[in-house]
Design a protein around this nucleic acid. Structure first.
Lengths: 141, 141
DNA sequence: TTGGGTGCAAACTATTTGCATTCGA
DNA sequence: TCGAATGCAAATAGTTTGCACCCAA
């Protein structure tokens, strides 16, 4: 298995990621992947659409939404729900938490180590934890 | 100061809450308050609208949205952002966390004591923490 | 009386969907 | 070739807004 921890990921890396997730690597999907994995970042669908079509319109809005959904379902990106008005997609795949500036709408990563959850409730056995999100909402004073 | 920890809150309690927050207690606002504060619960705007107009249409959609915004701004309810498709309003004012069933969209409270955050990152002094949200996303296996 | 609150409908925005076309394997 | 992926436009859903009217103070 190749090491894919580094950023930015090359076109070949993106191809690898898609193939090993069983996602057909069409040109639009690769292009969207290149945008998402150019660095660790949080992008809204709108921002992805703009970035992908910077030079010329190559990808439609529907395809961007569809592709982000596919990537998220396969765990290549993570949906971050902090802003009631839109979803962010996070290309940082390591476990981590979020700092949200409620005044500006900016979203920042917080390393996993800087937050320590020492206790979680006991859950009935039929429940499986997908994720424990910690969101620190801040504003300037 | 009256003790307003109990549920359900009476019409008089709701009136008190609004007045002491400096919110003009109009009939629509009181009615919405009675719905929200009948018990500790999570309601979407749509659910509030339906509950308020159960008998007859007395409150418009715009007024429900507007009122929920006013209540939230004054801290009478808390916005919970877990579902990309809508905002929940939480009438439980004690500090607590949330359990979110991603398959059913159901939201449950978790008492503050059952989660222990023993470490938070150091933040620059000009930032003020509004809230630390912990959301445990689960699904049935 | 009078300014804030309300109702309504229309506007807006993010997202989804249906269907004909195109493209990757 | 041929089913999956795409593009487009239209539909949808949640939420916001503009403005005339109304009512609580």
């Amino acid at each position: 298995m190749k090491n894919l921890e580094h950023f930015p990921k090359s076109r070949a890396d993106v191809l690898d990621m898609l193939r090993s997730s069983g996602i057909t690597p069409t040109s639009q999907r690769v292009k969207i992947g290149e945008v998402l994995f150019s660095c660790e970042q949080h992008l809204s669908a709108e921002q992805v659409l703009a970035a992908v079509n910077q030079a010329d319109d190559e990808v439609s809005k529907a395809t961007v939404y569809n592709t982000l959904g596919v990537f998220a379902k396969h765990g290549l990106i993570r949906e971050v729900i902090v802003d009631p008005s839109k979803v962010f997609y996070d290309s940082n795949l390591r476990k981590h938490h979020h700092l949200y500036y409620s005044d500006t709408g900016k979203l920042e990563d917080i390393s996993e180590e800087s937050v320590e959850i020492s206790k979680l409730p006991e859950l009935p056995g039929h429940l499986q934890i997908e994720d424990v999100d910690v969101i620190i909402r801040v504003h300037r004073n």
